[in-house]
Design a protein around this nucleic acid. Structure first.
Length: 409
RNA sequence: GCGUCGGUGGCAGAGUGGUCAAAUGCAAUUGGCUGUAAACCAAUCGACUUCGGUCUACGGAGGUUCGAAUCCUCCUCGGCGCACCA
């Protein structure tokens, strides 16, 4: 085949391939050997990662797969970031709360712009072999009912029912809607439309990705490899995620990010190094030995936090985040992130606190916090009166991590 | 279309005339223990409060009643079963 004047060199270095096939990898379909052979052929392959443009920021889960994409791109292969704008605009039916919440075109495009910027921490969007951004509405919105039926004719109900979520619903006698059935089909069709060689995604996306593989085989007579990445979770299966409240996003401040890592369970430390940092596998082995030898997990977690923050904010800010963390939590000092208000003398405590939106939920909430002994003057006494008059500059500490500097005008 | 069950707090899910701001579990917040760990223990978890209470809430609108999340009527949304299926 003729590829044009610019020929892209593909790196077939064994070490790189080895790393790509193993690090952070949960599974490879059809097999590890298949992908290894493909990579060693020295031909440029194309691979994509699909992202739903639901929020304005990517999170650490995305970072894991983006890192794999980065490795792939660095070997000289082609990477595509697919924005699932079509799927996003319909709204994922799995999640009741987002069912009616369709995304507008504008929101999707805004989000996508932010994604590109955030993803560029890992992927190269310029120069030779630049990463590409695609939108699946480009082909999905153009399909008519006939096309959809043709697509649907490649999968059976039985095959779809194998999906965990559907099996679960069946067991619980909960409804499964037809359009939910179509979801994997839509995502699977992306592979066909782009005619890629492979796809990367989190382990939770396995079913959708394999649907794409089936469709490609049937419609294009072509094998597609699927690489599923491990999810960040501890040994007992506790995931880092929104429900745990410690989901790290690309937009988090260095201090937030550092604190979130520190709140992970110890069981997540090694997985954290493997999935979220560039620390070498050999070094991770050493860390494992250290941990097993009785090192304080806290110190190692500090290092993990530093490594992660460095990726997003640079070394300097990682250092300052570490200092802030130590200062705030180990030494009981005041975080540099503290909110600040200025009030006139004699203002009552609750008036000052309520000026900062989101600091406390309501006056009642503050009252409860005061009752619980959670509000104190830094380096001073616990406050037990909501009407406490402010006459000079003070810094309040509410709970463990909320601070408010109050200045008197 | 027929039948039947249902819509309750961030979620799941009890409650079926007063004792209901509504059991329980999860999530969350705070305190204790700590390493801001996790686990565990305890408290809190609608708003306002002079801490006595007051107001607003159980899909929506009316009604019965001294009193309704609970009963009735209408509306609306949904589940399940049955029937229909050129």
């Amino acid at each position: 085949m003729f590829w044009g004047a610019k020929k892209i060199r593909v790196n077939i270095d064994e070490g790189k391939i080895e790393n790509f096939l193993n690090r952070s990898v949960e599974n490879i379909y059809p097999s590890r050997e298949f992908l290894e052979a493909e990579l060693k052929k020295g031909k440029q392959l194309s691979i994509y990662l699909g992202i739903d443009p639901t929020g304005p920021t990517l999170h650490l889960g995305h970072a894991i797969v983006l890192k794999k994409m980065q490795e792939f791109q660095e070997m000289g292969h082609k990477v595509i970031l697919l924005i699932g704008d079509f799927t996003g605009m319909i709204g994922d039916p799995t999640d009741k709360t987002s069912l009616r919440q369709k995304l507008t075109k504008k929101r999707v495009l805004d989000n996508a712009k932010l994604y590109k910027q955030q993803a560029s921490l890992f992927l190269k969007f310029s120069g030779n072999n630049s990463a590409e951004i695609k939108y699946n509405s480009e082909w999905l919105s153009k399909m008519n009912f006939e096309d959809v039926l043709e697509l649907a004719s490649h999968m059976t109900v039985e095959q779809m029912l194998k999906r965990d979520m559907f099996e679960e619903r069946q067991k619980q006698e909960k409804p499964i809607y037809i359009h939910e059935f179509m979801y994997p089909l839509m995502q699977g069709y992306d592979s066909v439309a782009m005619d890629v060689d492979g796809e990367i995604g989190g382990n939770d996306q396995t079913f959708n990705m394999l649907t794409g593989r089936t469709l490609m085989k049937q419609m294009l007579q072509k094998e597609k490899f699927v690489l599923t990445a491990k999810l960040l979770e501890d040994t007992t299966g506790i995931k880092m995620g929104k429900t745990q409240g410690n989901m790290i996003t690309f937009a988090d401040s260095e201090n937030d990010m550092f604190g979130k890592v520190m709140s992970w369970t110890d069981g997540m430390i090694l997985a954290g190094f493997e999935l979220a940092t560039s620390v070498s596998i050999g070094e991770i082995e050493n860390i494992k030995t250290e941990l097993e030898g009785g090192a304080n997990p806290k110190d190692i977690k500090m290092r993990l936090a530093r490594e992660i923050v460095t990726i997003y904010h640079g070394e300097q800010k990682a250092k300052s985040a570490e200092n802030d963390f130590n200062n705030t939590f180990r030494d009981g000092g005041v975080s540099a992130d503290a909110d600040e208000v200025s009030v006139s003398a004699g203002t009552m405590l609750f008036e000052a606190v309520l000026q900062v939106e989101g600091l406390v939920k309501s006056k009642s909430d503050l009252r409860r916090l005061i009752d619980a002994g959670a509000v104190a003057v830094v380096d001073g006494n616990v406050i037990n009166d909501i009407n406490f008059g402010i006459n000079k500059d003070v810094t309040l500490k509410i709970g463990k991590r909320r601070f408010l500097k109050i200045k008197v005008k």
